[in-house]
Amino acid sequence: MSHLVSIDDVDMRYGGAEGTLAVSQLTMRVAKGEFAAVVGPSGCGKSTLMKLVTGLHIPQAGTVIVAGQHVTKPVSIVGMAFQNPTLLPWRTTLENILLPLEIVEKHRHRLRANKKEYVAKAEHLLELVGLKGFGSKFPWQLSGGMQQRANLCRALIHEPELLMLDEPFGALDAFTREELWCVIRDLHAAQGVTIVLVTHDLREAAFLADKIFVMSARPGRILREHLVPFARPRDLEIMYHTEFNDLVQQLHGEIAQARVVA
């Protein structure tokens, strides 16, 4: 399997030589098509990791390679979604989803002439996440869970090879969160996209991921890598199995220890 993301010995420091060392000696690899989850204590550099992979930050040491390219500027083959859905309130949901196409070099010149095709694609995505018929609604007319679904559509509209999710479900209630886990699971299966999910929810990581990276306290680095053995397609039922709970418990123990060491 070829690696879509390779991070090698990366150091990232904020705010000059005396600033905060957010990650240090960070090394990790994510294969094409894989679903990776990153868990770790709060403030350990998980969001920093996301920004390094997307090219929003350039590390002071080490290399970040995405799709065979050295990352030295933002890479537009990724889609991003954060905990805050950040939909623009003056645009309808559909217009919000089409926004990346107005930006990405490959699409922005084609958008006007091929509007129909793109709108059809957006509506297909809306249907996939269970928002069929909501395209004409404004974001403030949607619930938090629905906004987050629309946010996922926006992250996927330009057909990114890599989807980076930074605690996307952190602000949702437990039932909505589980619904969205299934949405993400199905999107991953249907679109063959590589996903890196940052989360503090260990059950979320264990349910969704093929591989879980456990990070140390700041400065963050990878302490351990877990292969998640559960067969796909996975059902929410698996969360009641002993193997599942054992994995969650083990992750919990490792993170608790990482916090104590810090």
């Binding site: 997307t54 933002p74 890479v75 926004l99 930006i103």
Partner: peptide, 27 residues
């Protein structure tokens, strides 16, 4: 402008002028 909004757009290769036109000015 929310930093997350800016990050999402910059990650897509948005230039300063894109962010201003699409987000800053309407906002």
């Amino acid at each position: 402008i929310e930093p997350e909004t800016e990050d999402v757009l910059r990650a897509l290769g948005a230039r300063k002028i894109d962010i201003m036109l699409k987000v800053g000015i309407p906002r």
